[in-house]
């Protein structure tokens, strides 16, 4: 167990370090001199050179990387070039939109998908199963931003139930803020729910074919109890894996969805920063997202050990 945990943690850290090297390298090859950008086009070559030395841009590569990584670790993220505010403040403000959005979407996805998967697996081959899996098959094919447009058309343009976009901020009460996150969360969640429902169903069907399920039934346990207590728990590993992967999808999905709904979240921030070449913002947000993905995958790996006692004994 301990060896398993330690190995997982070591891999996560190594991946994070490698990822930071990649981000650093990409930013190195991006055309454009940060010092020149900060001083403007009219600055003299000497001024630029002076600032470069001051910013440490003339240091050896390795030293610059260590410096950069150290700053990241201590959350000294620098100032945004376009917003002229500390990146940390910017990120903190935006996370307050994106994280609730991703979490609501993830919760919605699980709440919709797991019961549907359970239902389909237990009524395998019946009309209800065929219908649910047909719907899931279509759900997988729907691009979330198109689904978002259709939701806007239906609920905002036509029925006028919710705002078509924008975010009032958490300061003006929780309800208006949640209301404006509702459509984006549904748009993000539904295609993911379709995938998760399929995975849940096939994982359950695999488990339901196992001998211990027959034994449980044979000793007289009602079907419902077998399904909930024995089958679902054993089917959780693939379901958890997909949920973890979906978190990464959802984080990336916010880039597009936040653009559809004009939500001031991380995704919109990083997208705008990329198009405006505000690299200080880009590197921070990208590293944050990558760290989040790695952390979630680590949590998923560790939760295997909780869900599946067999893993605890191994290694």
């Amino acid at each position: 167990m301990t060896a398993y945990l330690l190995k997982r943690i070591a891999i996560a850290i190594a991946t994070l370090v490698l990822a930071s090297l990649v981000v650093f390298a990409v930013l190195e090859i991006v055309p454009g001199d940060p010092a020149r950008l900060m001083l403007g086009m009219n600055a003299s070559a000497e001024q630029v050179e002076q600032l470069r030395t001051q910013m440490g841009l003339n240091d050896p590569l390795l030293l610059r990387y260590l410096h950069w990584a150290g700053d990241l670790l201590t959350l000294d993220l620098g100032r945004s070039l376009t917003y002229s505010v500390p990146v940390l403040d910017l990120v903190r403000e935006r996370v307050a939109v994106s994280l609730p959005l991703a979490l609501i979407a993830l919760a919605l996805s699980a709440v919709i998908a797991i019961p549907v998967g359970l239902y389909s697996a237990s009524r395998r081959g019946h009309a209800g199963d065929t219908l649910a899996m047909g719907a899931a098959q279509i759900g997988v094919a729907i691009p979330n931003f198109w689904f978002a447009l259709m939701l806007i058309y239906l609920f905002a343009v036509w029925l006028r139930l919710v705002p078509a976009g924008g975010f009032p901020g958490w300061g003006n009460g929780i309800w208006p803020a949640l209301k404006s996150l509702l459509l984006p969360a549904v748009a993000l969640a539904l295609p993911q729910a379709a995938i998760l429902a399929r995975v849940t169903r096939s994982a359950l069907i695999d488990v339901l074919n196992e001998d211990y399920i027959r034994t449980a039934r044979a000793k007289g346990l009602p079907y419902r109890a077998v399904l909930w207590q024995h089958a679902l728990r054993n089917a959780m590993i693939p379901v958890l894996t997909i949920l973890g992967l979906q978190f990464a999808f959802l984080l990336a999905g916010t880039i597009i969805i936040e653009n559809v709904f004009y939500l001031p979240g991380l995704g919109r921030l990083v997208f705008q920063a990329i198009t405006q070449r505000d690299l200080i913002v880009v590197e921070s947000v990208v590293m944050l997202l990558v760290a989040a993905v790695i952390a979630v995958n680590l949590i998923v790996d560790l939760s295997y050990a909780i869900v599946d006692p067999r893993l605890r004994g191994r290694e």
């Binding site: 891999i11 990649v22 990409v26 990464a248 597009i256 997208f271 997202l289 993905v293 995958n297």
Partner: peptide, 22 residues
């Protein structure tokens, strides 16, 4: 396999946006 983990750590769409933007 570790290189695989590395690529999987980057949300694909985010990196695609970065690559195309750069």
């Amino acid at each position: 396999m570790r290189l695989n983990d590395l690529v999987f750590a980057f949300p694909a769409l985010l990196s695609a946006i970065m690559i195309t933007a750069i």
